[in-house]
Write a protein that binds this DNA or RNA. Structure first.
Length: 474
RNA sequence: GGCCCGUUGGAGAAGCGGCUUAACUCACCAGCCUUUCACGCUGGCAUUCACGGGUUCGAAUCCCGUACGGGUCACCA
């Protein structure tokens, strides 16, 4: 049987990190097993559909490097791929279920149902199941839903790819709606019907779907269809161990936001693939091809995956370091331009700027912050640095160096280096006692990028000014 | 509350009955490299796997219970 998997988003907004993970693992699974990856649009909630939802979902998947074999823009033999275009199909299958006596029409209004539930709750019941009072009623010409008649005393056991054997009992599930009053199917019904019709072999989805599985299994069984294999991936949780919620502001949640900040798609792909999965590899910096080769569904984790921002930053930085200088400049340039940095500078200037910060850059937009920290912010010396420059000879060194700088025609990195050397010789300072005071005097801190490069970028005026200020503080 | 799931170092996370005196990564510390910084490299960092009982010659790994955390209970997906 051919491996066919699907990612089934509802077009209610932008691509969320959790959905991206679902898509990514299905993609990895398909590619690993030489199967097909399908994107099906589950737009049966007409209230919540967003106009640009589909386009946004698809374009961001593409940006991440995930492509598909069949979808709305690339029809295969199992279309249509939007559920709203498949309405007659679901209606027909629902009708069949009624004919078989496995489903029935329900004329209850939402108000009635709410009251019923309230009464059960008051009576202390845990299971707030539908009373079945419409079961067996003669056909009426009234608006109605169609409910699935849940079988008595049946166990639904499936061998989950991640959780292993999972069992649900039918008595824990009440008769549920398969076709809404507006003739549109509910999620569980449409999903099961489509998974069968589209010949989906494996379903990898978030653990929040695990309680939906028995309902979908009921549909498969009702039609005697072959059940697909399910795998429920752990939830992604935040530092408080809570499911990532779209309203959680402590974590950036949408792929688009990462894209806008200048994160790299290959890094995001790498990071997301490690959310609930650990490849049999010591190295964690992996590209798409490596990840496909390493993917193994038996290594999906069953305990929650923590969204570790630090790790994302680390991974992105590692991928940035792999970029060529040209590619990195291309990534950073829009942010610099927008911030008005380097308006009158040459290409060379930009190139050295990129070189100077490449090692520590976490994401594209950060270049602005880094630049400002070192070049624009009011000059001030950190405490530990201030202590350092109080040592003997520092003042003399800085004054010597400053006078050389003042006379210098140009301040390219090599020239600066030779002036540092000369100043060291004249004042008998070397090693850390030579470089560190100069570093501090121009940046205010004991840690930073390559010294001559950084000084060249700063320009003579700023350098002299900072040197003066530092000397004044000794 | 019912049903489902989870609990390993400062953090992420492997291991799922003997090969583990618990891999790997981040962070941190030390050393090396570099006339500074950063990069890189090397080493250090859990005698212990939520807790209590049990099974076993042997348990982080299996079973039971407790605690804590989470998910889910829609005419949403």
């Amino acid at each position: 049987m051919k491996v066919r998997v699907r990612y089934a988003p509802s077009p209610t907004g932008h691509l969320h990190i959790g959905n991206a993970r679902t898509a990514l693992f299905n993609y990895l699974f398909a590619k690993r097993h030489g199967g097909d990856f399908i994107v099906r649009i589950e737009d049966t909630d007409i209230e919540r559909n967003v106009e640009t939802g589909i386009e946004s979902q698809l374009s961001h998947l593409k940006w991440l490097g995930i492509d598909w074999d069949e979808s709305v823009d690339k029809p295969g033999e199992h279309g249509p791929y939007r559920q709203l275009e498949r309405l007659e199909i679901y209606q027909q299958y629902a009708e069949t279920l009624i004919e078989k006596g496995l489903a029935y029409k329900c004329y209850c209004t939402s108000e009635e149902l709410a009251e019923e539930k309230e009464a059960l709750k008051k009576a202390g019941h845990d299971k707030l199941h539908y009373s079945r009072k419409c079961l067996g009623l003669p056909d009426q010409d009234k608006p109605h839903t169609i409910r699935f008649k849940v079988p008595d005393k049946t166990e639904y056991t499936f061998n989950d790819l991640v959780k292993k054997a999972v069992t649900f009992k039918s008595e824990d599930i009440g008769d549920w709606v398969i076709l809404k009053r507006n003739k549109i199917p509910t999620y569980n019904f449409a999903c099961a019907v489509d998974d069968h019709l589209m010949e989906i072999s494996h379903i990898l989805r978030g653990e929040d779907h695990i309680t939906n599985t028995p309902r979908q299994l009921m549909i498969f069984d009702a039609f005697s269809w072959e059940r697909p294999t399910y795998g429920h991936m752990t939830l992604i949780v935040n530092e408080n161990h809570k499911k990532l919620s779209k309203r959680d502001e402590s974590i950036i949640q949408f792929i688009e936001q990462y894209k806008n900040l200048g994160f790299l798609p290959q890094a995001l792909f790498n990071f997301i693939a490690l959310l609930g999965f650990s490849p049999k590899s010591d190295d964690e910096i992996l590209d798409k091809a490596e990840l496909i080769g390493l993917f193994d569904e038996s290594r999906l984790s069953s305990s929650p995956a923590m969204f570790d921002k630090e790790k994302l930053h680390f991974i992105n930085n590692r991928h940035i370091k792999k970029l060529s200088d040209e590619a990195l400049l291309e990534l950073c340039l829009p942010y610099l331009n927008k911030a008005g940095i380097g308006k009158d500078e040459t290409d060379d200037w930009f190139e050295s700027l990129i070189k100077v910060f490449k090692d520590r850059l976490v994401y594209g937009a950060q270049i602005v912050e880094l630049y400002r920290d070192f070049f624009e912010h009011p000059f001030k010396i950190e405490e530990e640095a201030l202590t350092f420059i109080q040592q003997d000879g520092v003042r003399n060194l800085l004054e010597t160096f400053k006078s050389k700088l003042e006379q210098a025609e140009n301040i390219d990195p090599d020239t600066i280096k030779s002036h540092i050397k000369a100043a060291g010789k004249e004042t008998d300072m070397k090693g850390k006692m030579l470089f560190m005071p100069i570093r501090i005097s121009v940046s205010g801190t004991m840690h930073g990028p390559d010294l001559p490069q950084m000084m060249n970028l700063m320009g003579k005026k700023i350098l002299i000014d900072r040197l003066d200020k530092t000397i004044g503080m000794i």
